[in-house]
Amino acid sequence: MTPTSTPPAVSAEIPRISRREALQWVMTASATLALMPNSLSAADSAAPVTAKPYGTDPLLNHTYKPGDLWPLTLSADQRLTVSALCDVVLPADDRSPSASSVGVPDFIDEWISAPYPNQLRDREIILNGLASLDADSKKRFNGSFAGLEAAQKTTLVDTLASAEKDKTEAAKPASFFTTFRDLTLTGFYTTPAGMKDIGFIGNMPLTRFPDPPREVLEKLGLV
């Protein structure tokens, strides 16, 4: 499978047993992507991650916010770029708000600031990708990405996205676009607004497990 930034495909949609399968991809990703620091990279110029991991016995029944467990990374300018790009990836529409309005940039910042191998790998990809996006933006449109017109943003993101469409599954490296999109999807669809948008109903106690709507069974030829 594609090396990805997060425990992959269907991992949370399926029982714990199969989560093991899902985790294989994280493993593959971390094994194949060596952390090769580029001496000129944006990731290098950010402060190194020195925070402590949360350990093997953290308090589970508790609500954490990005920044609670380790310091965040993004500068004000980087945050603007992340917010703008999040909202190109998942903009507001008539069903749900934009990614930036439900805290996805905070989540991405938390992710790339975490003291764990997969996150340190993504830190390189994201920070370098943001720098490169802003550089392209300045070169082509004479301004930082966050300040561009919608059509200009689309032009730049189209270039990144179209490269993904042409790749075969096996040959895909963990590109900036794919990594950023995966993080945005994870960040957004784990919020109440995102769950509502895709139609997840659950995480609530019921006295009985309700039958599926007849419409569903009919559609599937199960009546």
């Binding site: 269907v10 999807l185 994870t186 659950g202």
Partner: peptide
């Protein structure tokens, strides 16, 4: 069998890369 409309978590939509 793992299936159903479960609560999304980290990586639930990574399959969309495919």
């Amino acid at each position: 069998i793992g299936a159903g409309r479960q609560m999304p978590g980290a990586g639930s939509f990574t399959f969309m890369d495919s």
